[in-house]
């Protein structure tokens, strides 16, 4: 689905990615995690085609991303960022339907898809014609998720999607998002700095440091048998690693069944 092969990236002399090889298998949620500056956001931005690798390549559905196929690839991706990235001059409906309208979908098809998604993300009808400034943070992220899902993408890219929310809303949305992804069986690549969130979402965690992948695998594997000292340090630096472990075990069980 999405593969990184020997990807190197520098920003003004600073190495952001130092030869990363990574696979995001189809239908699963991969979570990039690591301290800030480790290169996790760079990986996500490479997948979205917002930047290009200095060396190596990003392969999407069997073809390397390049200028000539970038737009076609993007139409098969959904993208959601911390503050939602909603266009402030358009209503929720305007935001969600914008690209479908550009692609010439008939109005009925757009409306039907919109209603379906609104139900999926539980966005009440009274908010559909509101503008982003009239919405709460949680409502905005629901709308942003609708926009990301509108064209029924194969790959969903999430950059700290819940990072700007207060803790209560955050936990609530975490549950819902995880349920939605499980139900849709989409390939998801997500960036977070919060290990609890990573554990919650990820059946595959990718731990990064200084432009390199340090360890990848299930949450349990990372928490129980860290590959090197850094992984253990990172895990221990998070709050209550024991509780995380328990949560991870609980979270993994239904998926394993």
């Amino acid at each position: 689905m999405l593969r990184y092969l020997g990807v190197r990236k520098q920003y003004s002399g600073q190495i952001a990615l130092d030869g990363v090889d990574l696979d995001c298998p189809e239908g699963r949620t991969s979570v990039l995690i690591g301290p800030s500056g480790c290169g996790k956001s760079t990986l996500l931005r490479l997948a979205a085609g917002l930047i290009r690798p200095d060396r190596g390549g990003v392969w999407f559905e069997g073809a390397p991303l390049a200028a000539n196929n970038l737009r076609a690839a993007r139409l098969r991706m959904g993208y959601m960022i911390q503050e939602g990235g909603l266009f402030p001059h358009l209503s929720v409906r305007g935001n969600v339907e914008l690209m479908a309208r550009e692609l010439g979908w008939p109005a009925e098809r757009r409306r039907a898809r919109f209603s379906e998604l609104a139900e999926l993300v539980r966005l009440p009808a009274r908010l559909w014609e509101r503008y982003p400034l009239e919405l709460s943070g949680g409502q905005r992220q629901r709308a942003a998720l609708m926009r990301a899902l509108m064209l029924d993408p194969d790959l969903i890219l999430l950059d700290e999607p819940l990072g700007a929310l207060d803790p209560i809303i955050r936990v609530e949305l975490q549950r819902e998002l995880a349920a939605i992804f499980a139900r849709l069986h989409k390939t998801v690549l997500m960036v977070t700095h919060d290990l609890a969130e990573a554990v919650f979402f990820g059946d595959r965690l990718v731990l990064m440091r200084a432009g390199c992948v340090v360890q990848q695998g299930s949450a349990q594997a990372l928490l129980q048998s860290p590959a090197e000292a850094f992984v253990a340090d990172f895990v221990n630096a998070q709050r209550a690693p024991q509780r995380l472990l328990a949560e991870a075990a609980e979270h993994m069980r239904p998926a394993d069944v």
Binding site: A48, G49, L50, L75, I81, G85, F87, L98, E102
Partner: peptide, 16 residues
């Protein structure tokens, strides 16, 4: 920048 990038990633051409 996030707004501009969102517009790119949802698939709008530069003119759109």
């Amino acid at each position: 920048r996030p707004i501009r990038e969102s517009a790119d990633v949802i698939g709008l051409t530069p003119n759109a």
